[in-house]
Nucleic acid binder design. Sequence first.
RNA 1: GCCGGGGUGGCGGAAUUGGCAGACGCAGCGGACUUAAAAUCCGCCGGACCUAGUCCUUGUGGGUUCGAGUCCCACUCCCGGCACCA
Length: 712
Amino acid sequence: MRRQLKSIGAIYDWTREVITCLPEYYKWTQWFFLKLYEAGLAYRGKAPVNWCPHCQTVLANEQVVGEGVCERCETPVIRRDLEQWFFGITRYADELMQHDGLDWPERIKSMQRNWVGKSVGAEIAFALDHPGVEEKEIRVFTTRPDTTFGVTFMVLAPEHPLVARLTAPNRKAEVEEYIARSRQQTEIERLSTEREKDGVFIGAYVKNHLNGESVPIWIADYVLLSYGTGAVMGVPAHDERDFAFAQKYNLSIRVVVAPPGWQGEELEQAYVEAGTMVNSGQFDGLPSEQGAAAITDFLEKNGQGKSSVSYKLRDWLISRQRYWGAPIPMIYCLDCGIVPVPEKDLPVLLPEDAEFKPTGESPLKYNEAFVNTTCPRCGGPSQRETDTMDTFMCSSWYFFRYTSPHCDTSAFDSEKAGHWLPVDLYTGGAEHAVMHLFYARFFTKALRDMGLIDFSEPFTRLFNQGVIIVERQKMSKSKGNVITPDEYVSELGADAVRAYLMFIGPWEQGGEWNDSGISGISRWLTRIWNLVTSGYKQKTPGQVQDIEQTPRALSRVTHQTIRKVTEDLEKLRFNTMIAALMEFSNYLAKVRENGSVDDSDWKKSIDTLMLLLAPTAPHLAEELWQQTGHDYSIHNQPWPKWDPELAEDEEITLVIQVNGKLRDRIIVPASTTEVEAIQIAAESTRVKPYLEGKEALRKIYVPGKLVNIVVR
RNA sequence: GCCGGGGUGGCGGAAUUGGCAGACGCAGCGGACUUAAAAUCCGCCGGACCUAGUCCUUGUGGGUUCGAGUCCCACUCCCGGCACCA
């Protein structure tokens, strides 16, 4: 990896390299864990978690991709109830949806907003009166409180804690069987929208406060315990899932929001749009948007509900049953409970003699020297946490470490971090949208709230580079490169490879690797070599053929090229930047053939060409720089500046249209006025035939561009 | 289904605010050099026709405008993400 980066001429400050798996780095990763713990942002909790049977470890939600498979090995994940360490990323849900002041691609912002998944609605209580059950209500979350009069059933998640206690004796067998069945299913099966919704009536009821109706309670696995309250109100008339469920089990479907023109007929499908409220008591006649607020207010006054917000985002599960990753610096003491490792005892080192067994538990668990320790609080015998941290934890703060990579008294030097950060321009793949990029934002906000930094966002500008496709496979670090740049570097040189990758298409789009494409770039670099090294000879004025190559024209083209290349470079539009350099070198070749300028003008333009070429073809540019008698190094020279006056066109091509159709092009001085331009247009021999016998209604003039004569 | 991004020659792709569609390169064709080939250099290169020119052409259909690849409406196809989130 390092060798490849160097071979292609990438410039990094290797003195700042950090290696996240070394103790000098992960000591501070562990330190951050302790800080997050102190701040109440790291906690241990039991939850249904994602388990990868192949990697034998738990995964964060963000690391379950596609159809519910492991991000690393693509094995379908299953659910397990385990006690694990979590970070309270949900506390920053609202802030993570905001990207104010960030220059980020729309699609990444949208993926992050989507991942947070904010829904505004209400929590509504349904009265519960069940012998032997303490709870007097079940709360549901809904985005449509306006449809509360349309509730004809309630559905609990199968794992809902009340299910066992509420189930009627005669329903027990069926309910238990259903729960067992849904537990066995993989995430894919359970989440498939294709699947028919099924469920079981548990033989208990709640009461709808609004209309006093008794509502049967069902369980169904399309209701998720982890979202909202784990219970939903069934409104079949106005929700597609509830509609399907009601049809299957013959539950009644009551319209409470009338579609336009509704005459009381039965619905063929759920009506999910807004409408006028009906069958809703005192709320009848209200538009449903207003009805939602009115019902929420009404319930709130009676203590039977409140407005509420739900998120799809879950807390970040960071425990891993893996050897790699920093050990979680926590100790379990029989007397004191969970005790953090004191800062002075960091790092908690990974043992070097761990054994790897496919047990589904951390390899550290079987390493007695690691596990057994003494409690920092009471000194009694105790055991270490044996899980390690998600490696995304290491990458969530490495850019802070870059600002002071060898600091051994703190994770980073706050003053230096304040000076260098936030990162001006961050490039990376879009696949990090809801993983690394998301976690790094969370981490930055948490550090801010701890008072360690005074900014909120790690990366001001984000740019996603595209993927290079070779023989229908992507070139990628984690997937194993199908072809490596190495062979091309040794055959055609690093500069040709770099320039080709830039030229292949827009940087964010990637592109398909094509061998004849790179040979074209290689030919161009050869032409540049010849152009610069093969000398220049001015011809006597009489021999000069072409007026396009005057000294004035040369300086204009040179300065226009500086402008174009500089602007494209800032916008990371390398493909058009190289096109501009090609046009420039093509033009210089013509000047050279004509010999129409003097040596010093020629030399100035050639110097500019080399300087503009330096970021693209650093090796070639350096060599040519030396060959033309300059001092080492071209890469330490100031970037050329363009002079707006010299870049100014003296002549423009005036486009002449009649009724919007192109009829002529005339080269005129840039100083041509509107009156002159219109006159020139009208007198053009190509234009005249189109004006004859016609009445000119309008004459449109666009300065420096065109004249359009509208005739009838 | 929802969100985001796209559809331009044989191919990759250019085209500030609405103002010359196809920059630049690849492939192809013709020519020069050569005994020949490679390399290099020069020219042509969206389509049609009655080829000095005219007409058509930016996924499809409509609209706005003097003028639309660009703006608006509807549709369609492709890519990426999310997806029983109540």
